[in-house]
C-alpha cells in the first residue's frame, strides 16, 4: 500500500483506467500509486496486454465455414439468395 490510492481502490477503477475513460485527477493518483507499487504496475501492464490480445483476436474477420453457411441458408429457405 502506498500513496493516497490503495491497491484495492486501484483495482476498482482499472477497467476505466485502461479504457482511457477515467477522470484525469484519478488517473494521476493511480499513476502516482503505480510508481511506488511494482505489483500494481505489473497488474495494469498485463491487464492492458490481456485486453490487447483479445482485441487483436476480434479484428480477424468473423466468417462462417461454408458448410455452416450452406446449412443455415437451407434451413431458412434462402438458398436462392446465397452468395458463393
Amino acid at each position: 500500500m502506498s500513496g493516497q490510492v490503495r491497491c484495492q481502490d486501484l483495482l476498482a477503477s482499472l477497467s476505466d483506467y485502461v479504457d482511457g475513460v477515467l477522470d484525469e485527477a484519478l488517473c494521476r493518483e493511480i499513476e502516482a500509486h503505480m510508481a511506488a507499487c511494482p505489483n500494481c504496475r505489473v497488474v495494469v501492464d498485463t491487464l492492458r496486454k490481456t485486453i490487447y490480445l483479445y482485441h487483436q483476436m476480434s479484428k480477424e474477420p468473423a466468417t462462417l465455414p461454408s458448410v455452416v453457411q450452406e446449412r443455415l441458408y437451407r434451413m431458412l429457405h434462402l438458398d436462392d439468395y446465397r452468395k458463393l
Partner: peptide, 27 residues
Amino acid sequence: DRQEFARLVDLYAGQVYRLALKMLNDP
C-alpha cells in the same frame, strides 16, 4: 422480403457464429 432477409444474414451471421463459438466452445 426474402432477399432483404438474406442480406441481414450475410451481414451478421459471422458475428453471431463467433459469439456462439466463444460462449460454447463447440462448433
